[in-house]
Amino acid sequence: MPTVPRSISNGSHNDFIKRFTERESQKRVTKKRPKELTAAQRAGLRRQLKSVRFLKPAYADNSKINIAGILRKWKKYCESSELGPWKPAMETADKAMAMDFLDYPCDTYKITSSGTSWEYIRQCKQLYSSVPGRYMDTNDSKEIHKLHDDVLIPLYGLRPPIANGKPVLGTDDLLTFKLAHDTSVFPLEAHHV
């Protein structure tokens, strides 16, 4: 284990911590909070919020990339199903269309894992909340999951996500790896004998 050089004393660490703490406390003091709203301002805020139908989620960059990918599949689905332009089709989508769309990539693409099709469900929900500006109905979502588990997995022979993939290591495997590569227990010379 590396040792701390003697030239660095506890005093210099304490100085650093003190300066850091002072700087952070100054940042907190300089941040000004908005003034507390009056009763009339609160009433006005409530009137404004009544007109807000849906606050679109602020997705992370990776989620936006996933949504763009599922949007490409949605556009191809709309074209092959002759639903017309993709956006109006998304805005009028219902449970039956969502179920049919979930079947589409399983039927069209070479999907072999139930984890991939499960991911399409999640991404489809994100796309749905982004375009029409509302969340998918909870009961409809449950029915879509049942279709996935009870119909699509057996119909397309989708395997569990980890089957035929990378093996999952247990703690005994990790211990074997550690012992095999620990030169303090087994010196390198012993390996070449």
Results as ranks from 00 to 15, higher is better:
6 R>D: 13
8 I>D: 15
10 N>R: 15
12 S>D: 10
17 I>E: 11
17 I>R: 08
18 K>Q: 14
19 R>C: 12
20 F>T: 12
21 T>P: 05
21 T>G: 09
22 E>F: 08
23 R>L: 15
27 K>E: 06
28 R>P: 00
29 V>Y: 00
34 P>H: 08
39 A>T: 03
40 A>E: 13
42 R>H: 06
42 R>L: 12
47 R>M: 08
47 R>Q: 13
50 K>S: 08
52 V>G: 02
53 R>I: 12
60 A>E: 10
61 D>A: 15
63 S>L: 01
67 I>H: 06
69 G>N: 10
74 W>Y: 09
76 K>G: 02
76 K>N: 06
78 C>W: 04
79 E>C: 06
81 S>F: 09
84 G>C: 08
85 P>Q: 11
85 P>D: 14
85 P>Y: 05
86 W>S: 14
86 W>I: 09
87 K>H: 02
89 A>P: 11
94 D>I: 08
95 K>A: 13
99 M>G: 12
100 D>P: 10
101 F>C: 11
105 P>D: 05
106 C>W: 05
107 D>I: 04
108 T>K: 14
109 Y>E: 14
109 Y>M: 15
110 K>P: 09
110 K>I: 09
112 T>F: 04
114 S>K: 10
115 G>T: 05
121 I>R: 12
124 C>Q: 10
124 C>K: 04
125 K>P: 03
125 K>G: 11
128 Y>D: 04
130 S>G: 07
130 S>N: 06
131 V>P: 02
131 V>I: 13
135 Y>K: 14
139 N>W: 06
140 D>E: 10
141 S>Y: 14
142 K>F: 09
143 E>D: 10
143 E>H: 12
144 I>L: 15
149 D>A: 14
150 D>E: 13
155 L>W: 01
156 Y>S: 00
158 L>D: 01
161 P>L: 01
161 P>N: 03
162 I>Q: 02
163 A>W: 04
163 A>S: 05
164 N>V: 04
167 P>C: 08
168 V>E: 05
168 V>F: 05
171 T>R: 03
173 D>W: 02
176 T>S: 11
176 T>W: 06
176 T>E: 10
177 F>W: 03
180 A>P: 07
180 A>D: 06
182 D>G: 06
182 D>L: 03
186 F>V: 12
187 P>E: 13
188 L>W: 11
189 E>N: 15
189 E>A: 15
190 A>H: 11
193 V>W: 03
